[in-house]
Design a protein around this nucleic acid. Structure first.
Length: 668
RNA sequence: GCCCAGAUAGCUCAGUCGGUAGAGCAACGCACUCGUAAUGCGUAGGUCGAGAGUUCGAUUCUCUCUCUGGGCUCCA
């Protein structure tokens, strides 16, 4: 027998094992539960570093951590392995199918296929593929790893052109660093790793995988979609199947319920159900009309925004929706975003465009007269409606729309003021978002896209530094998004987490030294010399329409009382109580409440039900007792019914609740 | 823009193997006058998304367009 090897566990303890021991053996030696939950291992040794299969023999001196199925890394392995099973099922059911890539993604996996004769998948096909996958899982096929040279691998995948292309690319590009897609598919260097399940089915893959298909099973195939090979819209369109996979039936079930919950909250459905707005096809895609119920919420959002900006030292401006092309030539938008703008309108004295952004117009306001350093920072605010020609396939309810209104501000300041301004801006943004019920945020710092930028590198560096400093001053964690900046400068984007854990990108703070340059903006400094200001673009809601959509989903249509289209509904028990009900409604109305009344035509239970389906914050039921005592029966949304509440007491409580919610705007 | 799937009453959906359509809810009317999530009966409501083709006849089959949904790509 060869000499034993020493393995170090995550707690620092070292154990001895016979040579040839695998990560799976180590897991088994620690405990049955661990062995059962193990899907792969993370190993660091002189020879290997990274995630490996449980079946891989360990080297002497290796440090090892078992990856279990409920960890992020473990789920990734399960999903990736399930993707392989799906590919095998498809190649069996559709002879001649070519398979390309099949990674694990958040919550699941997908795999892209090219079916013979341009065939496409149907829903029936999905059911058949699902059934075949379950057979493969029952067969408990092993995932056997092999490492090949690229030449050998090309031979193995002789009839798989996409796999060959990946292998060729990896072989050709020693600098494959720019191609994450491919690196996920094969091992690094000049070794190509493959995983074989059966004599017939082998797939190119970096691994690791579960030891055998029997380890899988808690999955569901979800949908078929088209997807471009390598994401290139000029390339071939492949057939993609998405699925979700989890470590247990319970986790799968929980995820499916989460999806159902998200569907129930879909703002497009709720907008129809609650009569908030609609997208008439006569208008064209991505254009909405606001019904009274939606419009009142929007008005409240905008009123709140205006009140906050007024107190925040902003000055309000208005600018038109159209401009001659010259403006967008000056701003650079026609150079960079002509494709995203509505087509030009030729008119007698020139070419006009719908505005895709407000900033060029605001620059004209700035430039309308000489500016002094004493005016800076100059904060211009506008609820400015812009139009962008979003491609037809990208439109999505209020979330992606062609005409929308930005709560848009451009702050002109001296470069040395920028850092302070951004710092206080962050406070302002978060305070407004909190007022709408969001309290978890994530921050992204987007830096220069080397392919798409204007301006000097030193300016970019200084601007990025100013943003970074502001984030640091707040002690905020942020993610660096390399290359995600706008062409004119770096930015901070703020995402919020909603009630069911989804994140939405809403606010943005962008640093721009380019527009002031292009528009020749200046101010006279204390030194009596001319200086160039910098400009901060910022939006809190981003788009009022989109923000409204997010609010609908966040609250599932049950808006907080201060935002609810109808806050209080009064229901007389019978017609005899209608006169008193009118009095109650008047009283609530004069306290500023949005109130309505539904007479006793329908049974009370039916009227209550209707009010609940409309998600109204308060239903007031009034009957004989109330007429006599001057009270109301209060049925609050999500709470217990309270009979005999004094009308004055209810009105006071109600007014307090609304005042508290909007306190941020009312305080200085 | 590309791939796939759709579009029937205000909403959710059924149906027509080619002979111009039906339910539930909503609306309206009548009766009921009721104390906290669906009272009963009745009435009305549809160019079956738009246009063209095939056919004696098209909502149904074919094509084009528009819009919608899921993806891809894009997103100042």
């Amino acid at each position: 027998m060869s000499t034993p090897i020493t393995i170090t566990l995550p707690d620092g303890s070292a154990r001895e094992y016979p040579a040839g021991t695998t990560a799976g053996d180590v897991a088994a030696s620690i405990g049955r539960r661990l062995a059962k939950a193990a899907v792969a291992a993370k190993v660091t040794s002189p020879q290997v570093s990274g995630e490996v299969d449980l079946t891989r023999p360990l080297d002497d001196g290796a440090r090892i951590a078992i990856i279990t199925d409920d960890s992020a890394a473990g789920l990734h392995v399960l999903r990736h392995s399930t993707a392989h099973v799906m590919a095998q099922a498809v190649t069996q059911l559709f002879p001649g199918a070519k398979f390309s890539i099949g990674p694990a993604i958040e919550h699941g996996f997908y795999y892209d296929f090219d079916l013979p004769d341009g065939r496409t998948f149907s829903d029936d096909d999905l059911a058949a593929i699902d059934a075949r996958m379950r057979e493969i899982i029952s067969a408990d096929q092993p995932f056997e790893r092999a490492e090949l040279t690229p030449v050998e691998a090309l031979d193995v995948f002789a009839d798989q052109p996409y796999k060959r292309e990946i292998i060729e690319r990896v072989r050709a590009a020693a600098d494959a660093a720019d191609d994450d897609l491919d690196r996920g598919e094969v091992a690094a260097g000049d070794v190509v790793s493959v995983y074989r399940n059966t004599p017939e089915f082998v797939d190119l893959c970096k691994g690791p995988h579960v030891p055998s298909t029997g380890r899988l099973g808690h999955f569901r195939l979800q949908k078929v979609a088209g997807a471009y090979w390598r994401g290139n819209e000029k390339g071939p369109m492949l057939q993609r199947i998405y699925g979700t996979a989890w470590e247990s039936a319970a986790a799968l079930q929980a995820h499916l319920e989460q999806l159902a919950e998200a569907e129930k909250r879909d703002h497009r459905r709720l907008a129809t159900d609650l009569d908030l707005l609609s997208f008439p096809s006569e208008l064209g895609g991505g254009l909405a009309v606001w019904h009274p119920r939606g419009a009142i919420v929007r008005k409240l959002m905008e009123d709140y925004s205006r009140a906050r900006h007024e107190r925040g030292g902003y000055q309000f401006v208005y600018t038109p929706h159209l401009s001659k092309s010259q403006l967008f030539e000056t701003s650079g938008h026609l150079d960079w975003y002509a494709d995203g703008m509505y087509p030009p309108m030729e008119m007698d004295n020139g070419t006009y465009y719908m505005k895709p952004m407000n900033c060029p117009m605001h620059c004209l306001v700035y430039r309308s007269r000489p500016r002094s350093y004493r005016e800076l920072p100059l904060r211009l605010f506008e609820l400015g409606t812009v139009y962008r020609y979003e491609r037809a396939g990208t439109l999505h309810g209020l979330m992606r729309i062609r005409g929308f209104t930005q709560d848009d501000s451009h702050i002109y300041c001296a470069p040395e003021q920028a850092s302070d301004e951004i710092t206080s801006l962050l406070d302002f943004v978060l305070s407004v978002l909190r007022a709408f019920g969001f309290d978890e945020f994530t921050f992204n710092l987007s830096t220069k896209d080397p392919q798409k930028y204007v301006g000097a590198d030193e300016d970019w560096d200084a601007a990025t530094e100013a943003l970074r400093r502001a984030l640091d001053r707040h002690g905020l964690e942020y993610e660096l998004k390399d290359g995600d900046a706008a062409f004119y400068g770096p930015k901070i984007d703020i995402d919020v987490r909603d009630a069911i854990g989804r994140t939405w990108q809403l606010s943005t703070i962008q640093y721009d030294f380019n527009h002031p340059e292009r528009f020749g903006l200046e101010y006279v400094g204390a030194d009596n010399a001319r200086h160039r200001p910098i400009m901060l673009h910022r939006a809190l809601f981003g788009s009022v329409e989109r923000f409204f959509g997010v609010l609908i989903e966040h609250y599932a249509g049950a808006f907080p009382t201060w935002l609810a289209p109808v806050q209080v509904r009064v229901l007389p028990v019978s017609t005899a109580h209608e006169e008193y009900a009118e009095k109650v409604a008047d009283r609530v109305r004069s306290a500023g409440g949005r109130v309505d009344l539904v007479g006793a035509g329908d049974p009370l239970g039916k009227r209550i039900r209707a009010a609940k389906l409309e998600k109204l914050p308060y239903v007031l039921v009034v009957g004989d007792d109330d007429v006599v005592a001057g009270t109301v029966g209060v049925n609050p949304r999500g709470g217990e019914v309270e009979r005999g509440v004094d009308l004055g007491v209810f009105v006071e409580r109600f007014a307090d609740e609304v005042a508290f919610a909007t306190a941020g705007a009312l305080q200085a």
